[in-house]
Structure formats: structure tokens, C-alpha cells
């Protein structure tokens, strides 16, 4: 069942319109899952093109302190994969924005990769990103995801060699997530990677849309990165707003405001 990917279609449509996509990441279950539903609705209403929900994990080794702490709060709040599927179902009742789950491999492996892909698709998830599942280990989940009609979206890094890009791009679905920095997630003052060279190298091997993420702090940085790709990902900056808010009722509009300003900047840049 390798039908048309909704995620790819969404980004292609933006590209044809001469626009750049904005992908927003929040940790599911921070501060709790009811809050996640509220915040996700605000993100969608503010113009987020794709919503990524992080599955919290005890040992998030590709994440900086902001998402580490969000993950710990979400686990303490009792967040589990099945409860996240429930929240996705609720979000789906209100909006049709593509939803991607991003999480480390162990909780998925423990849940069972076939069952995970099937239940995710059934609840309205469109894609998966697993930061600690490199191409070599991704076969089992890739097959199950394809069967369920989910995109397994790969990450490529500034260190990725050409022979790896060939393999990764040939099995990629949805979009290709270009990690902008050699490092963990988190806001940075500047992105030192030569994004022009990096993304053009990736494009030589890939036809799918490219998204750039890790380290995007705000509208200006998003606009600068967007020159070289089809979409940018904002994560830690949103998670920080949620952490600093009184509750989800306050976090939703505040996160929405950042998304709106980023979206405006992307549209006018």
C-alpha cells in the first residue's frame, strides 16, 4: 500500500505555490495529553503545516536539555503510546493537518513494530521519525510502516557520506529531515553548517521535499534556513514556551503566536 503520501503532497503543494512549510514539534504529554490536544489545535490554527508529536522516552540521547526535560515531565504525567494514539484521535476530530510521531526506537520496539505502525495509521498518524534508527536497522519498521501506509521519514546529517545518502534517499518516504547541526536538538544562536552545500548535496540523491531542523530559534533563523529547503522544523523553541507557561490554556496561544510569526516571515521572505 504505497499510495500517495499526504505529507509529501502537503509539502509539494506549498512548493508549487512558492511557499515554505513550517513543521512544529511538541512533546506529547507535556504538560499532559489533554494539554497536547489543546496546544496542537492552536498550532494548526496558527498555520503549522505538519505537526510532530514527540513520544517521551527515558533516555533521549539525541536531545538537548529542553526536550529532555519535557520528555521527563511527560513520562511523569503517565504518557504512554496508547494514550498518545488517543490524543491523535482527538486532534483528528478538529483538524486534518498531517501528524508525524517522533520517538526513540525502544518504546516502539517494545510495543511491537507491526502493532505500532498499524495502530498509528488507524488513529490518523501520517508519518514516523525515529532518530536512533539508522537506515541499516530500519528494515522491519519500514516494511510495517509501508504496509500501514505510514511514511518512515529518514534523517540525514552534515556528516552523512554520499554512499549513505544513496541508500537513505532511495528508501525515504514523506520528506527528508536534514539535521542542520552536528549535535543534539536545541535552540542555537547561529547555525554554522553550510546549509547551501549540505542541502544541494542531499538534493543530488533525493526527489522528496527537504526539511531542515535542529536549532531553529525563531522567524529570522527559519527564513534564513528556508532559502535552502522546502520546510523548516521548530521544536525546542515551542517546547520552551510550553514549559514556561502557566498551563496548556496559556501555552496554546503563546505557541500559536510563535508559529504565526514564523509563518508570516516564511511567507514574506
Amino acid at each position: 500500500m504505497r499510495g500517495e503520501s499526504r505529507i509529501t503532497a502537503c509539502l509539494e503543494k506549498l512548493r508549487r505555490a512558492g511557499k515554505k512549510g513550517l513543521i512544529t514539534f511538541i512533546t506529547a504529554g507535556d504538560p499532559d495529553l489533554a494539554g497536547t490536544v489543546v496546544i496542537a489545535k492552536h498550532l494548526a490554527a496558527a498555520g503549522a503545516d505538519i505537526i510532530e508529536l514527540g513520544i517521551p522516552y527515558s533516555d533521549p540521547l539525541a536531545d538537548g536539555p529542553v526536550i529532555q526535560q519535557a520528555s521527563a515531565r511527560a513520562i511523569a504525567a503517565g504518557t504512554t503510546i496508547d494514550k498518545i494514539f488517543g490524543a491523535v484521535g482527538e486532534i483528528r476530530q478538529h483538524c486534518s493537518v498531517p501528524i508525524v510521531l517522533m520517538g526513540y526506537y525502544n518504546p516502539v520496539y517494545k510495543y511491537g513494530v507491526g502493532k505500532f505502525a498499524g495502530n498509528a495509521a488507524a488513529t490518523g498518524v501520517n508519518g514516523l521519525i525515529i532518530p536512533d534508527l539508522p537506515h541499516e536497522e530500519s528494515g522491519p519498521l519500514r516494511r510495517e510502516a509501508a504496509k500501514a501506509g505510514l511514511d518512515l521519514i529518514p534523517l540525514v546529517a552534515p556528516t552523512t557520506t554520499e554512499h549513505r545518502l544513496v541508500k537513505i534517499a532511495s528508501d525515504a518516504r514523506g520528506f527528508i529531515y536534514c539535521v542542520s547541526v552536528t549535535g543534539v536538538t536545541g535552540v542555537r544562536e547561529e547555525i554554522k553548517t553550510d546549509l547551501a552545500a549540505f542541502t544541494s548535496r542531499v538534493r543530488r540523491f533525493a526527489n522528496l521535499p527537504l526539511a531542515v531542523g535542529f536549532g531553529i530559534a525563531g522567524p529570522e533563523q527559519a527564513a534564513r534556513a528556508a532559502v535552502y529547503c522546502d520546510a523548516v522544523v521548530v521544536g525546542s523553541a515551542l517546547v520552551k514556551i510550553i514549559a514556561g507557561s502557566r498551563d496548556a490554556g496559556a501555552a496554546g496561544p503563546a505557541a500559536g503566536a510563535l508559529v504565526r510569526s514564523m509563518k508570516n516571515m516564511l511567507d514574506t521572505a
Partner: peptide, 14 residues
């Protein structure tokens, strides 16, 4: 066994 690490590290492991 295997190699379950972020892509950033895969070239270094190779």
C-alpha cells in the same frame, strides 16, 4: 547487537 544511533554518528562508526 547492531547499531541504533543517530545518523550523525553512523559515518564515524563505519
Amino acid at each position: 547487537g547492531g547499531r541504533f544511533v543517530p545518523e550523525t554518528l553512523m559515518p564515524a562508526l563505519e
